[in-house]
């Protein structure tokens, strides 16, 4: 059935994403991001969206990984002492992430969410605001998360220095 194989693919995607965030080398991080994107395109094929999957595979897996890897190759690597210092610092900051992710997954698996996705017939699709807020609320959640992505992209620019 669909679900069992899908969950294996989803677990692989989460592992690739964790590798992209946790690994020390930026180059490996870019490769792991491309792997995440490729696994996501497999999921899109299974979710009955082949055209979007082809776009994801060609553009996100190909173009963005080339972009990241060329950017990383334009920057210079750290020296050995800096790498040792940096590794300790990174481990201290990122050690909580797998625990948080696994706890979030276990916690959410006890909750059952069934969205009420009832679509209107085509002749009533005249009032855009009514359709958007009352019937396509799941899409609104996605749009709000896109806006949050932009907000957090701005937030990192205004980060304060860490006081020791």
């Amino acid at each position: 059935m669909l679900i069992t194989l899908d969950i294996v693919i989803l677990i692989l995607m989460i592992l690739a994403a964790l590798w992209a965030v946790m690994t020390r080398s930026l180059l490996r991080s870019g490769i792991a991001l491309a792997l995440t994107s490729a696994i996501l395109s497999v999921l899109m094929f299974k979710l009955n969206a082949p055209l979007a999957a082809v776009f994801e595979l060609s553009v996100c897996t190909g173009l963005i990984s080339v972009l990241f890897i060329s950017t990383i190759s334009l920057t210079q690597p750290l020296s050995y002492e800096e790498i040792i210092k940096h590794m300790k610092d990174r481990f201290r900051r990122f050690r909580y992430l797998p625990v948080i992710v696994i706890l979030a997954g276990i916690g959410l698996s006890f909750v059952k969410v069934r969205p009420n996705l009832i679509l209107p017939p085509p002749e009533t699709e005249t009032n855009v605001r009514n359709i958007l807020w009352n019937f396509r609320s799941l899409d609104m959640v996605g749009q709000v998360i896109v806006l949050l992505c932009g907000v957090f992209g701005v937030v990192i620019l205004f980060k304060e220095r860490v006081k020791k």
């Binding site: 991080s29 991001l33 994801e56 998360i145 992505c149 957090f152 992209g153």
Partner: peptide, 19 residues
């Protein structure tokens, strides 16, 4: 660059949600 990678992961989650 790692912040951009995190942003990319968020965008991938949203893409999967829409699909």
């Amino acid at each position: 660059i790692r912040a951009l990678i995190g942003l990319e992961l968020l965008l991938k989650a949203v893409t999967l949600l829409i699909v």
